[in-house]
Every structure is written in C-alpha cells, then in structure tokens.
Amino acid sequence: MPKRTYAMRYVAGRPVEQIFPGSARPLGRELPLGEPLRTSKFLRVMVWNIFKQQRTNWLSILKKFGKDSQLILLQEARTTPEMVRFATSNYLAADQVPAFKFPHHPSGVMTLAAAHPVYCYPLREREPLLRLSKSALITVYPIHDKRLLMVVNIHAVNFSLGVDVYSKQLGPIGEQIALHPGPLILAGDFNAWSRQRVNALRLFAHKMELQEVEFLIDNRSRVFGRPLDFVFFRDLYVAEALVLATRASDHNPLRVDFLL
C-alpha cells in the first residue's frame, strides 16, 4: 500500500500539525479570509533548492537573502532543529511535504509564509528509476485587496525516461490551478534539463495562462545548459527579478518582487 501524502505545519508555540489532502476545506470562493500577507508596496518571494542544508553557510544565506520576503519557497528542505527554529521565529507558518528522510529529518518542499494559509494541498510523485519521491505543495493566502493568492511550490521528478511521469506530476497541480480564479505563483526546481521537459513545462504554463518571470542577468543553476529553477505567475506584476549567487547550495536562489 503506498504511503499517504501529507503536509506538516510548523507554527511557533503550537504542536506540529499533520494535514492530509482533502482534510482542508475544499478550494473555492467559500474559503475563509484570514489575516492577509503583510506587504508594503511589494510582495517579495524567494525560491531556493537548499540542497538538504548540506553546506555550512545555508542559514546565513537564508537569513540574508530571505530578509523582507513574505514568502520563501524551498526545495530539498530538511526539518532540522535549525530550520524549524528559523521558520517559526521569522514566519507565521511553515508547511512541508515530506518526500523522504535524509537521514533522520524529512526532506521535501517547504513554504514559509508571513500569513497562515487558508488552504493546503500536498502532493508527491515517485521517481520511476530511483523509487524516491518528489513533492509539491499548494497553499492559498489572503492578500490586502481581499483576493486570495495561490502559491505552488514544486520539486519536479528528475530521473525518468521521456516526459510521461514529468507531465503526470503537473496534472494534479493543473487541476488545482483551474479551480482558482485569482492571482497565482508557481515556482520551484522543475529539473527542466532537456528540451522535452522545457517544452512540456512551457506548454503546461501556456494552458494555465501563466507568464514566466525573466531574469535580466540569468545566473540560474543549469544542467546541459538549461536552467532548472523557474517562477511563473498570473494576475501580478513583476517589479524586480534577481538571481542571487551563492555557494551555500548547488542551486542559486531566485528573488522576485511582485507589485500587487
């Protein structure tokens, strides 16, 4: 029997909460409006595959580059005591989808937010060759104009023949996006290292009516000359998009300021 997919929610001063698909209120206009994401003029989003925190300076870089970000979307984030302490002391909620344990603490996508989500939907897809899982997480947050912002944090499958499994992982995400009429951010490590994967990803973005963030100085981490990390969006405006150089991971972080 396959393992059930779930998310773990970390909030300061509260027990860790386990959230299963379908346990949250169904996605739609009836979602409750909580406290909105705290923003001034911009909504700052950081996206980073943190390489399981295997390099010594990951925390200092996260503090430096994540400063003033209302959302941090991490891939390969391990729930070590240091990570949980950073998340709960700087953000109102941190949601992680455990993909696998490495070696003692679960690793997977993690979304840190300056507001509590009103919707949470975890997803996992098994790598067909390595038999390890990759995860994705869909969360929804209220913003200042009373709209709801959907945030999709994804770590795409890496080792597969063809693009069938790659496209399969995007399918349930597309179903969720289709139910959401408002602004949206889709970002993460898409492992788009082949022409077929890039084509499948851009076809998916086109079908979902998403725009791709472009980086003027594009220092994104690459394999076979193709970038792995992307940010897509809808019903938002890009004010600034940067790739931040660091050796604290095998990926460079992305930072995007959206004008709401």
Rank of each mutant, 00 (worst) to 15 (best):
R197M: 13
T88H: 02
P26F: 15
S194W: 04
P26G: 06
L62V: 06
A12W: 03
P21N: 03
W193Q: 13
L161Y: 14
R25D: 10
E209Y: 08
I138V: 15
R9W: 09
F65K: 11
P117H: 09
E212K: 01
H116C: 05
P26C: 08
S23Q: 02
A24L: 03
V118E: 07
L59T: 02
L260D: 08
P103F: 09
K67L: 13
A114Y: 01
N49D: 05
Y121A: 10
M150W: 07
K52G: 06
L132K: 10
M208Y: 02
Q75Y: 12
H116S: 09
Y237W: 07
L43G: 03
W193N: 13
P183G: 01
R124A: 02
L123C: 03
P181C: 14
Y121Q: 07
R197V: 15
V45S: 00
C120L: 07
A200V: 00
L31C: 15
L73Y: 03
A93V: 09
V152I: 15
L260R: 14
R38V: 08
N90P: 01
H251T: 03
T39S: 14
R126N: 13
L184K: 06
F20V: 13
D145S: 11
L254P: 07
E175V: 07
A192I: 03
L129M: 12
V45N: 02
F159M: 12
L216F: 12
L92Y: 08
P36M: 10
A24Q: 02
R14M: 09
L27A: 07
T139S: 14
V151G: 04
G171V: 04
Q211M: 11
P26N: 08
H116R: 10
D257G: 05
L71N: 09
L170H: 03
K64N: 02
P128Y: 02
E212A: 00
I154C: 10
Y6F: 15
Q176L: 15
K67M: 08
E240M: 13
V165F: 04
I19R: 02
R222H: 12
S89Y: 10
A192C: 08
P253I: 06
L129A: 10
P227F: 04
K146V: 07
G13W: 00
Q96N: 10
H116D: 14
D250L: 07
E82V: 05
A93I: 06
L184P: 01
Y91A: 14
H180K: 09
